[in-house]
């Protein structure tokens, strides 16, 4: 099994990927969704910093829209990235819990 470095769960990029895993969303919808499921309010600058980085890496993609509020969607690469991140977190939780029980 491949191990990945566990990143902070409040990492904006990870939160955006997790939010888009639930369906395409525009910026404000992402903010609301992230606040709901992670309890973290991303500021507009932080959110769009993450969106810019993720789009440049091809992990998300802007969907053509007539609305000013452009929705974003996860790409196949983004899905694999999110899976890898979650697997890493899952491994972390598993090991941490086991050690905690052994105390």
């Amino acid at each position: 099994m491949r191990y990945y470095a566990v990143r902070n769960m409040s990492d904006p990029s990870l939160l955006v990927l997790a939010s888009l895993a639930g369906g395409d969303k525009h910026g404000y919808a992402m903010m609301q969704d992230i606040q709901q499921f992670a309890g973290t309010r991303l500021g507009p600058g932080t959110l769009y910093g993450a969106i810019t980085r993720l789009e440049q890496r091809g992990l998300i993609r802007g969907v053509d829209s007539d609305d000013r509020r452009r929705p974003y969607t996860l790409t196949a690469l983004g899905q694999r990235q999110l899976q890898a991140e979650l697997a890493s977190l899952s491994q972390f939780v598993k090991i941490g819990s086991r050690r905690l029980h052994e105390l």
Partner: peptide, 8 residues
């Protein structure tokens, strides 16, 4: 990103 950022 300017237009969508302003909308946000």
């Amino acid at each position: 990103y300017g237009v969508e950022f302003e909308a946000l």
